[in-house]
């Protein structure tokens, strides 16, 4: 099918806090094609993470329709959502979220446990993924023996290990200095070159500049989309 990888229409997310409700997303429509490289930007509290969590199937919208890879996410059961997270999505977090007691290799291999892949094969795939991010020599290290940049590479390797159709990264450079940030972004660039669809959240213009497309979120709405802008300007021209 030639439909977009991601189709969001009329997405609303409300959080209930006691008696009051807070609308974090107020009607988001968005399409992302395969092999796009998208930056979600916007002020703090605008709803970027909320949107990412929905894209990553960690959460479900209050109303609206989300189609990923032609599957209507809204109709899925809890364990089906887990399977989507496991197979379709690689998620990279700002604070790495590695499992501290496990080795680097074990961390990267963990998603494959939930696919029922035996140990040897898991470790083979995990080692390959770690080599891809340049950490082939750190397999037996613990996360706390690594620098921030290295930890984030491990997280990227873990996100990639299952060949997901979508790589999501919520402020992946937020905890890194600018030099290390550039290294991580170079990695994302390379992955995009290899055909990976990448969506990331950032505040920083020079990070967003790595991406082909910028989507700006403000107050729970998309207020700017460089792809739509292009379309608009094309029409205008």
């Amino acid at each position: 099918m030639s439909r977009a990888l991601i189709e969001l229409s009329g997405i609303v997310k409300r959080y209930r806090m006691g008696d009051t409700e807070f609308e974090a997303l107020r009607g988001v429509d968005l399409q992302i094609q395969r092999n796009e490289y998208v930056a979600l930007v916007g002020p703090s509290g605008s709803g970027k993470s909320t949107l990412m969590n929905l894209l990553g199937c960690l959460d479900t919208p209050t109303t609206g329709r989300y189609t990923l890879n032609n599957r209507d996410i809204g109709t899925l059961r809890d364990d089906e959502l887990a399977a989507i997270r496991n197979q379709e999505i690689g998620f990279v977090f700002q604070s790495f979220h590695l499992l501290p007691r496990m080795t680097v290799l074990g961390n990267v291999a963990q998603p494959l446990v939930y696919r029922g892949i035996p140990l040897k094969e898991r470790e083979r795939q995990a080692a390959e993924s770690l080599r891809r991010v340049g950490l082939g020599d750190k397999l037996q290290h613990r996360p706390n023996q690594l620098s921030g940049g290295q930890r984030q590479r491990v997280a990227v390797a873990r996100a990639l290990v299952g060949n997901p159709s979508l790589l999501l990264a919520d402020e992946p450079t937020g905890n890194l200095d600018s030099r290390t940030s550039e290294e991580i972004m170079a990695l994302f660039d390379a992955l995009h070159q290899d055909g990976q669809t990448v969506v990331l959240v950032t505040h920083e213009p020079d990070i967003a500049a790595h991406c082909q497309r910028t989507v700006r979120v403000n107050d729970g709405r998309i207020v700017f989309d460089s792809a739509a802008q292009a379309t608009v300007s094309e029409v205008a021209a």
């Binding site: 990553g56 809890d78 887990a82 399977a83 496991n86 197979q87 979220h97 499992l99 939930y114």
Partner: peptide, 13 residues
């Protein structure tokens, strides 16, 4: 536990 769920662990897992 949150991390494991994000990586695809089901409730049953």
């Amino acid at each position: 536990i949150g991390i494991l769920k994000a990586l695809g662990a089901t409730r049953r897992d």
